[in-house]
Design a binder for these strands. Structure first.
Length: 572
RNA sequence: GCCCCCAUAGUUCAAUGGAUAGAACAGGAGACUUCUAAGCUCUUGAUGUGGGUUCGAUUCCUACUGGGGGCACCA
């Protein structure tokens, strides 16, 4: 049993002896290491029930803990309004530290989700458009959340959903057709065509009509794709163009995803979801789940405290809502998982509330296991991104820019890329996922202080210590996963933080909050840097023990960064 | 107009209802003949306003102020 478990049990029994059963108290990490390794708030919780002074109760709990824990503790004290603070002894820390030294890649993982299969949708850039930093943000958070869930023993199936039919595609294709480009050459060319088409759509009535009509044609054509031979010549050309365009866009999207370490098991497209979506919604129309209104098929969200949304337009084309319904069924068929997580920007909260409400009437089982996890938007200090204003930052553009910055400090292109992407990921993962990020390209992306490179650098220096130690002939068993007992009586703070790692990971997973892990790793890196500056490791007192601490730190930081999806450079 | 989210230091962000609100950047000061200075040590500086619940509120409730997002045929 873990020490924490022991403490919990002792306190629970003590409370029962005092006449307080089933009390919901916490054994937690105190705000500061100075307060100890664990704090118990039980005295304050039961004070009223027992009509006693919390400090009195705390004193009694403290003395019980002291005698029961014996050599596991240095001290138990009562502080503040009635906290019982417990400071662990070196021997207790050593036994907890054992895992960090011996478990290797398993250190920090747990099996609370072993046997589970979880599907996660994120990223979701559209073909025919460039990927902007909003998609990058979703991808970074989605990847970290996926890895967190994997760290709990689940199998995670990643998928991304792209809009390959709809007005934005019609806009891009309309422009290409107008310019007589039948074979688009690059994703960039297509992205530009979208912008041009989009502009024309707003400025010219004729263009608007043509694009709307092309949109309908496109839906028809794509729905006929399986019987291509029956299509007229111009439609067959349109289909070919659409296929080329989609593939070119996706190749570019995949390239950017690969840069940030994401690979999707499934790529779903609107065109795949139209048929199942239309079928299900039309079926729901018959059952009265959806209703006709002004020629459109709508879901009356008002009945459930939401707002009404159109699922099928009066022109007979499906909207995003219907496509998401179709996707739910498609995903069920292809992936079949016990839990579905959909990660998108917060602006889609309303949309998903409606879709999930409709889905709960159509397929309660699917709706029940589906969770929408919104992430905050990325805002520029210069205002909202807008393609017309020309202040859109593309995903690849941002990465390129930060790599340039990193190259100023490190000429190795591999390291510069790891540092740059680490910095971007850190910026996104350091804050709670729902919060908006205000982003200043000049200032926000720090390579110093509270940053990705700070974590990477602490790790690199620790690894360097081990390398130097290996060269020294006096030190034996450098790789041996054993902890020496030859340690100072008072544990170093760095070791007290290392042992918290598994619980931090479990907690971050439970709350789907990678920022909790990021904050912890930053604190850990800071503690290591202080230790490194203060203590001589090679040739210092307790050399063997300090080297094993370095190893434990390296394992912890390496595994932690891996969960966040941040790469660890060999040298910096 | 209706609904949702947010408000913490000069700036960008933290804080399962808990202790002296924690970092980083910027500002000020410093250490270093030693394992990588993208580092270390010290320092200045903050919970939008008014009520309420609680032993205890940045956290929960409420009103207000200010910002963001959503609200039928876009995704």
């Amino acid at each position: 049993m873990s020490i924490k478990g022991k403490i919990h049990k002792i306190v629970k029994n003590s409370l029962a002896d005092m006449g307080a059963e089933d009390i919901d108290f916490a054994v937690e990490y105190p705000a500061s290491l100075e307060h100890g390794d664990f704090a118990v708030n039980a005295a304050m919780v039961v004070a009223k029930k027992l009509s006693k002074n919390p400090r009195e109760i705390a004193d009694e709990l403290a003395s019980n803990l002291k005698s029961a824990l014996g050599k596991d503790i240095i001290s138990v004290s009562v502080a503040g309004p009635g906290f019982v603070n417990i400071k662990l002894s070196q021997s207790a820390i050593l036994s907890e530290l054992e895992g960090a030294v011996s478990e290797d890649e398993e250190w920090g993982k747990n099996n609370t989700r072993s046997g589970e299969r979880v599907s996660i949708e994120y990223g979701n850039p559209n073909p025919f458009k460039e990927m902007h930093i909003g998609h990058l943000m979703g991808a970074v958070i989605g990847e970290a959340v996926s890895r967190l869930i994997e760290s709990s023993g689940a199998v995670v199936v990643r998928d991304t959903f792209g809009g390959d039919v709809g007005p934005h595609v019609a806009k891009a294709l309309w422009w290409l057709l107008r310019e007589g480009i039948t074979e688009p050459g690059s994703a960039t060319e297509i992205g530009k065509a979208y912008l041009k088409g989009s502009n024309a759509y707003e400025k010219s009535e004729t263009a608007k009509k043509e694009i709307d009509s092309l949109n309908v044609t496109l839906y028809e054509t794509i729905s006929m794709a399986e019987n291509e031979a029956e299509l007229q010549n111009d439609k067959r050309k349109l289909l070919a163009m659409w296929r080329t365009g989609r593939e070119l866009s996706m190749q570019e999207h995949r390239r950017v995803f690969a840069l940030i370490g994401t690979k999707f098991d499934y790529e779903f497209f609107d065109s795949d979801t139209v048929a199942p979506g239309m079928r299900v919604v039309n079926d729901g129309l018959k059952k009265g789940i959806f209703e006709k209104s002004d020629g459109a098929v709508v879901y009356h969200g008002e009945k459930h405290g939401l707002h009404t949304l159109v699922f099928i337009t009066s022109r007979g084309t499906p909207t995003y809502e219907t496509k998401d319904i179709g996707l739910a069924f498609l995903r069920e068929e292809h992936i079949t998982s016990g839990k579905v997580i959909i990660i998108t920007g917060t602006e889609q909260i309303g949309h998903f509330n409606v879709v999930l409400s409709a889905l709960s009437e159509i397929a309660p089982g699917i709706a029940k296991k589906t969770t929408h996890v919104p992430h905050g938007l990325l805002r520029l200090t210069t205002g909202k991104m807008s393609s017309r204003k020309g202040n859109v930052i593309t995903g690849s553009g941002l990465i390129r820019e930060v790599i340039e910055k990193a190259l100023e400090r490190n000429k190795d292109p591999i390291v510069a890329e790891q540092v740059a992407i680490g910095a971007i990921k850190y910026m996104i993962l350091r804050q709670s996922p729902g919060a908006e990020i205000v982003f200043d390209t000049e200032k926000s992306l720090s390579l110093d202080g509270d940053s990705g490179p700070y974590l990477q650098y602490a790790l690199v220096r620790a690894q360097s210590v081990l390398r130097n130690a290996e060269k020294s002939k006096d030190i034996k068993n450098i790789d041996a996963p054993i902890l020496t007992d030859d340690a100072p009586e008072t544990p170093y703070d760095i070791s007290r933080l290392i042992v918290r790692f598994p619980e931090i990971v479990a907690n971050a997973e439970r709350l789907l909050a990678p920022n909790l892990l990021t904050t912890y790793l930053t604190e850990l890196a800071g503690e290591w840097n202080s230790f490194y500056a203060k203590e001589r490791i090679i040739g210092g007192e307790y050399e063997a023990y300090k080297l094993s601490l370095a190893r434990a730190f390296i394992k912890t930081m390496t595994n932690g960064l891996a969960i966040l999806g941040i790469e660890a450079p060999k040298k910096m």
